[in-house]
Amino acid sequence: MSPYDASPVQAPAPLVDGFGRKVSYLRLSVTDRCDLRCVYCMAEHMVFLPKAELLTLEELDRVATAFVGLGTRKLRITGGEPLVRKGVMDLIRSLGRHLASGALEEITLTTNGTRLAEFAGQLAEAGVKRINVSLDSLKPDLFKRLTRGGDVAKVLAGIEAAQAAGLRVKVNAVALAHDNAAEIPELIGWAHRSGLDITLIETMPMGEIEADRTDQYLSLETVRRELESFWTLTDLPLSTGGPARYVRVEETGGRLGFITPMSHNFCEACNRVRLTCTGTLHTCLGQEDATDLRAVLRAGASDAELVEVVRNGVLAKPKGHDFRIARAEGPSVSRHMSTTGG
């Protein structure tokens, strides 16, 4: 019997925020740790959280189950790098019971790909159908510099292993003005030739790091205009539950997404909330709102009490974020993306 053998909490009404938006998508961070140190994401010498501050696997399962009972249909496992968390496959396999019951539509994963060769088969067996892999460059030297020591060959081998296991893979690439801007068409072409979707993301001002994101910010409106100078981009009426807007590149036949938190926010239809690995519920990526679910869990709350706290937290969800990238302003939010959950 599963150690997390609990049924979803049955809620009388769906989870809705104060603006009438139905929340049906939970991003669940299982760790703040990562085996890479991407320059736009975290400091080179990060101080990671002590184990006691992280939710246990049982606590993560309990909160996720509460959200499923409140109408969550999509669950994304994030980090840090989720596959470095000891026992994470036990958690994913256990959460798969909600797939089997039909209460949950899908469990997905965002990963840097370094451990996919080891875990791809297990993910597929656990019911995961698709994953996102972060990959900002195919050039070994540039990839090594951007990740502070990473090996792009390991990530590419992980992607191949995921495809061989039957997983659908989408590549996520952060657009960086002085690093990979010129490589973006090549990256898109490679992805489409490899049978992969790809999404471009604007860099976001989260957490104090050494790099100056002001200089690295690249508007995807500018990128799109450049791509349209030699490719035909056809808008697609497609949503995968996240914030990306999609086009088809007619010349390659592949799909390309744009996530534009800076140049065009995506708040009006936001259906997402995030739970950090420490049990903090954030209902907006770009605001400092927070509800401490760890304290509720460890105070011995009943399922009904947990649901009530979740409802109140989501009810206070802000209308939207106000990300800014400007010199001397510092980050829009102080927490790192690796702590928040990607």
Rank of each mutant, 00 (worst) to 15 (best):
Y4M: 07
Y4D: 04
A6Y: 02
S7W: 13
L15M: 04
F19E: 12
R21I: 01
S24V: 07
S24L: 04
L28S: 11
V39C: 12
A43F: 08
H45T: 15
M46E: 15
V63Q: 07
T65I: 01
G71C: 08
T72E: 04
R76G: 02
E81I: 15
V84A: 09
L91Q: 04
I92V: 15
H98D: 08
S101T: 07
E106V: 05
L109P: 03
L109S: 11
G113E: 04
A117V: 13
E125D: 14
A126I: 04
V128N: 04
I131P: 00
N132W: 01
L138F: 05
P140E: 06
F143N: 02
F143K: 08
R145Q: 12
R148S: 11
V152G: 02
E160Y: 06
E160S: 11
E160Q: 10
Q163I: 08
G166N: 06
A173H: 05
A175F: 03
L176I: 04
D179F: 14
N180P: 00
A182S: 02
A182D: 08
I184N: 03
I188V: 15
R193T: 06
I198Q: 04
E202N: 00
R213W: 15
T214I: 08
D215K: 15
E221W: 09
T222F: 13
W231H: 15
T232H: 13
P237Q: 07
S239N: 11
A244E: 00
R245G: 02
V247I: 05
E250A: 14
G254E: 05
L256D: 08
L256Q: 02
H264Y: 05
N265F: 02
E268I: 07
T276Y: 14
T280F: 04
T280S: 12
C284N: 00
G286I: 00
G286P: 00
T291Q: 01
L297N: 11
L306P: 01
V309Y: 10
K317F: 05
P318F: 12
R327N: 13
S334Y: 10
R335T: 14
S338H: 14
S338A: 15
G342R: 09
G342E: 10
